[in-house]
């Protein structure tokens, strides 16, 4: 039995090898460079720990990621709820609404936001028609968040929907007949049961928002860098591979910490987190 199995398993080797050599090795190289470049030692982490610009960049990245996660969760929840409680046809249509932009170029979408949010863009043209002063949005964190959340929505909606469709639709009714008004039935029964989806979605969205490069680079300000943009600058412009490596390590530590935190929260709350990657 086991020999037969390992023979079929050979089929997985080319892909595993490609990911190992073509993905894991490069990632490992930059991580290792954080302690070897320009010379062996911990100087790059000392820079990370003491440099105020580096601090700003890290805090800003976390701040933006938290905000992006919260905003996306708040917007995705009603959308997912509508999907989960609609007929199959309506659900499929809404699914396409979520999935189409998921596969539409990130670049094109950033570009579209530039046209809309710039000084003489669509938004200010419309506002001007109502006699409202033009707003400066492009080049601010607001623009970055608008663009990021739009891209992140599917990652939040899909895990939420997959949990919500599993909730017995009679449970809120059961609560109602036992005397709970609509909002209580929702808050005490439906909402807690949908939380695993909210957590799974938030986990994915938070991790993804730590790695956004294109959107902040195009919609944000160069003076308000996030980790990925700083990493880019350090390596390609300042040729400081070590500092870039340290930023990479910091990002992966954050990713790991979030995983751990969520795992602990889920454990305490007794929530089973299903296939996290399922939504992808």
């Amino acid at each position: 039995m086991s020999t037969k199995q390992s023979r079929t398993a050979v089929l997985a080797w080319p892909a595993l090898l490609l990911v190992a050599l073509g993905f894991i090795v490069p990632v490992a190289i930059i991580l290792v460079m954080s302690v070897t470049d320009p010379q062996p030692g911990t100087q790059n982490f000392e820079w990370l720990a003491t440099n105020s610009t580096a601090h700003d960049i890290m805090w800003r990245t976390i701040y933006i990621a938290v905000l992006a996660t919260l905003i996306t969760a708040v917007l995705a929840y009603p959308f997912a709820y509508l999907m989960a409680t609609s007929s199959t046809l309506v659900r499929s249509i809404l699914m396409v609404v979520v999935l189409l932009p998921f596969w539409t170029s990130m670049m094109v979408r950033a570009f579209a936001w530039i046209i809309i949010l710039q000084k003489n863009g669509l938004l200010n043209t419309v506002l001007g028609a109502f006699g409202i002063e033009p707003l400066t949005i492009l080049g601010t964190n607001t623009a970055v968040l608008i663009g990021m959340c739009q891209i992140l929505m599917p990652f939040m909606v899909l895990p939420m929907v997959s949990v919500m469709v599993g909730i017995d639709s009679r449970l809120p009714l059961a609560a109602r007949i036992m005397g709970a008004p609509k909002w209580k039935a929702f808050l005490q029964v439906y909402f807690p049961l949908s939380l695993p989806g909210v957590f799974a979605g938030s986990l994915i969205v938070f991790i993804l928002s730590l790695g956004f490069y294109v959107t902040p680079a195009l919609l944000g300000s160069p003076r308000q860098q996030l980790i990925p943009n700083a990493l880019f600058t350090q390596v390609l412009e300042l040729l400081s591979w070590g500092k870039g490596g340290a930023l990479a390590v910091a990002t992966l530590v954050m990713v790991g910490a979030v995983f751990l935190l969520l795992f602990l929260v889920a454990k305490v709350m007794g929530i089973k987190i299903g296939k996290i990657g399922g939504g992808l």
């Binding site: 993905f23 490069p26 930059i30 790695g211 490069y213 990925p228 880019f232 591979w241 870039g244 990479a248």
Partner: peptide, 11 residues
């Protein structure tokens, strides 16, 4: 899918 592409790109 999970590791930020900037990190992969630099490496």
């Amino acid at each position: 899918m999970i590791i930020p592409s900037v990190i992969f790109g630099v490496g």
